[in-house]
Amino acid sequence: MCPLTPVEGTYHFDGKMSNKGYALNKMCYSLNAAECREEFSKDEKAYCEKFGLNEAQTAAILNRDIIGLLEAGGSIYYLAKFAGQLKLNMQDIGAIQTGMTVEEFKAMLVQRGQGNG
């Protein structure tokens, strides 16, 4: 198998990570359903337990630690569904991950869109 080239600041979601994060992603996937979102918001910890998340995954959910969730095997496509529960959009998530303010993150996107930076 030809491994993917490591890219700084990037968590390649491959087979190993998919196995590692399966319970976490399955929990996030369930949040497609309104009744599951309601159950999650009533008791997040219990909901994580129900899906068999490990300690690190549960802690990262409770702490809104997006990088921690990626390290614990989260796929950004499923984490987006978790972010939705927090009323966070992709710029908010980007700001959290890069340690910027949302305004700084948005400004960076504009700069890059213009071919700068």
């Binding site: 600041g9 968590y11 979601f13 990088i67 990626l70 984490l79 890069t98 890059r112 213009q114």
Partner: peptide, 13 residues
């Protein structure tokens, strides 16, 4: 790129 510390990567070029 949506994920990681590299989130926000865009390359016009």
């Amino acid at each position: 790129q949506l994920d990681g510390q590299r989130a926000g990567f865009i390359s016009r070029e």
